[in-house]
Design a protein around this nucleic acid. Structure first.
Length: 271
DNA sequence: ATGGCATATCCTATATGA
């Protein structure tokens, strides 16, 4: 099973490129962020014609997340992150696909910092830390994928100097990300590629793509059952190289689900 | 401190992103 995450920066503006990527890379599951569209504008029929079922939660102008599944049923588990009923941002979706729990998240950017937006980011982080701790040991294979808006270490950016005051590099943001990983979540791309720079985002400004001046902010985290299945991880950089591209490129993992605990183990857990 | 670019909407202007 190939699971990908892609911040599309506008589903309407990006639809042709999204379809092209789906056709070429054939991910089994795709988590999308920054739809920037109302629910009614989500192109679910076009995606269905391309072979993908969808669950989505849109919002006018900003945010918005979706999970696509190729040729498989998709069961929505939840469409909001617990912990703050007053939070009306569309930033979280959770669904079950082929026995795997897929969480799709769009963590707040947090700029400028300090300020209310950064406080919202940290508060959102506390909520996902709490929820992810429960997901980690829930007994099912879980992948938590999305735009985390955190550069985990200085190795995950081309040059941290001009970004020191940015919310994505703040010690508080990084400390939250480490606490999120705490229960044992595997940061797939860094786990398989510990020694090479990997980027998933390149600013539109100042020829960042042309200079490969990128950041690694889109992550796919795996709990223990899925960590044993991890056989590959990478970034579809060709998507970012195109005209009219999102500022993010899709990141993905390849999972060999035959390595999941067998039915004997499952039977033992069920009375 | 600002701006560079892209996308959105209350679109000849403004908010947001990272």
């Amino acid at each position: 099973m190939k699971v990908a995450t892609f911040n599309v920066n506008g589903i309407k503006a990006r639809l042709p490129k999204l379809l092209q990527w789906l056709e070429r890379e054939q991910p089994d599951v795709a988590c999308l962020q920054e739809l920037k569209a109302l629910d009614g504008m989500f192109p679910h029929q076009v995606l269905r014609d391309a072979g993908y079922r969808s669950v989505w939660r849109g919002q006018r102008s900003w945010n918005g997340v979706a999970i696509l599944a190729r040729g498989a049923d998709l069961v929505e588990v939840r469409r909001e992150l617990p912990g703050d009923p007053s939070d009306d941002h569309s930033r979280y979706l959770e669904a079950a696909v082929g026995g795997v729990i897929v969480a799709c998240l769009y963590l707040p950017n947090g700029n400028p910092q300090p300020g209310p937006k950064f406080n919202y980011k940290l508060a959102w982080f506390e909520r996902i830390i709490e929820h992810a701790a429960g997901l980690y040991g829930c007994g099912h294979p879980v992948v938590m994928a999305g735009d985390y808006n955190v550069v985990p270490t200085d190795f995950d950016i081309y040059d941290p100097r001009s970004w020191r005051k940015d919310a994505l590099l703040q010690p508080e943001s990084r400390e939250c990300y480490q606490r999120l990983l705490g229960p044992g979540w595997i940061d797939s791309i860094r786990h398989l590629h510990p020694d090479v720079p990997v980027f998933t985002f390149w600013d539109y400004f100042r020829k960042h793509w042309e200079r490969d001046a990128g950041l690694r902010i889109d992550h796919l985290l795996l709990n223990a059952p899925l960590a044993r299945c991890l056989t590959g991880a990478g970034v579809d950089r060709w998507v970012r190289a195109q005209e009219h591209a999102s500022d993010h490129a899709p990141a993905w993992v390849e999972l060999d689900l035959s390595r999941l605990p067998g039915k004997a183990a499952a039977r033992r857990r069920v009375p």
